[in-house]
Simulated assay, not measured.
Amino acid sequence: MRREHRTGLQSLPTGSARSARSAFLLALFLVLLLALLVVPAAVPSGTASAAVVSGAADGDGWFRKATARAVRAHERARARVDRLREADARPPKIEAAEERRMAIRAGLWDLLWAVERNVGDPVAVDPSGRAGHCPVPTRSHAQQHQRHQRSPKKKTRTMQRTKPRTLKTPQDLKKPQTVQVPQATQVPKTPQTPHRPWTAPTRGYWLSAGFAAQGSRWAHRHTGQDFAVGAGTPVYAVGPGTVRATTCGDGFGNQVVVRHPDGYFTQYAHLSHIDVRKGGHVSAGQRIGLSGATGNVTGPHLHFEVRITPYMGSAVPPLPWLRRKDVQVIH
């Protein structure tokens, strides 16, 4: 599906000249970005998506810089919405700020979708992983694994010793007997599922390559946070959401992309095993796979990324994003 966002440019607030100017500038910006699609059209489908995002199509990195500006504009708009909500601003003001944020996100989404689909990014062309024969579990296996994680462990009953009964003597029968009135039986309450807090994507890790790190291993900058763990370490969804993609075959190897209620996406890459399927619902702390060394890697680790859209080119710093969810990652 091309668009999953709800708001386009037409939903921007038009009640003031300032809003109209912002909408015009945003539309002009998106037109310039879409003009770049003429250049990537000649790129072979097997070319890595990182080459397009890093500016290889135009040589000077203009495309990459333009998408980076759009990401920064979205994060400023998101921060403004958060400030207005914390200040208990009037609803129309909050709605106008949120519409502007959604418009920026919609333009970035459409642009990256077109580029990534053109270069053959699996998240854009094969989000279920079926065409690439990715190691995705069958539906029955995924449901069974999910029930196994949710079902509580049965407690074993222990037999308690009872005191031996003693026969009553005639003297005991003469003593006044106290009658115990039975208490009204209470209907047991249905236990509610506790709300799981957001969590780190794995355990027993140490942080290796961080966000925006530079080096010969990346086309431009590192777009996520690497968690150094051994192969086969469980990988968990950091929060509740819906599985957007389970793919393989590119530099990220076996990967899972999850969409969360706040609209952001998290990516878990280089997995050796995938436990979930596209369209499935996950909870915070639910195991979604095992770490590995698939794709373009130098050793086993988990590549964790936070994105505004499902596609490469919209990443934001993951550790500050996790801190906003009250997740403290140990350095």
Score class of each variant (00 low, 15 high):
residue 1 M to R: 15
residue 3 R to E: 15
residue 10 Q to N: 13
residue 22 S to Q: 14
residue 27 A to Q: 13
residue 37 L to G: 10
residue 44 P to K: 05
residue 47 T to Y: 03
residue 63 F to R: 11
residue 67 T to Q: 12
residue 67 T to R: 09
residue 74 H to V: 10
residue 83 R to L: 12
residue 90 R to Y: 03
residue 91 P to I: 07
residue 100 R to H: 12
residue 102 M to Q: 13
residue 102 M to H: 13
residue 105 R to W: 11
residue 106 A to C: 14
residue 107 G to R: 00
residue 108 L to S: 03
residue 110 D to M: 11
residue 112 L to C: 06
residue 114 A to I: 13
residue 115 V to M: 14
residue 115 V to W: 12
residue 123 V to D: 09
residue 124 A to W: 01
residue 127 P to N: 06
residue 128 S to I: 08
residue 129 G to H: 01
residue 133 H to S: 03
residue 133 H to L: 04
residue 134 C to H: 04
residue 135 P to Q: 02
residue 142 A to R: 02
residue 142 A to E: 06
residue 146 Q to Y: 03
residue 150 R to D: 15
residue 153 K to Y: 10
residue 159 M to E: 14
residue 168 K to E: 03
residue 180 Q to F: 03
residue 181 V to F: 09
residue 183 Q to H: 09
residue 184 A to P: 08
residue 189 K to N: 15
residue 190 T to S: 12
residue 192 Q to A: 14
residue 202 T to P: 03
residue 205 Y to V: 08
residue 208 S to M: 12
residue 212 A to E: 10
residue 215 G to T: 00
residue 218 W to G: 00
residue 219 A to L: 09
residue 231 A to Y: 02
residue 234 P to L: 09
residue 236 Y to G: 10
residue 239 G to K: 07
residue 249 G to F: 01
residue 267 Q to I: 14
residue 274 I to T: 03
residue 277 R to G: 04
residue 280 G to A: 15
residue 290 L to E: 03
residue 292 G to P: 00
residue 295 G to I: 04
residue 301 H to W: 04
residue 304 F to R: 00
residue 307 R to V: 05
residue 307 R to E: 05
residue 309 T to A: 05
residue 320 P to T: 02
residue 328 Q to N: 12
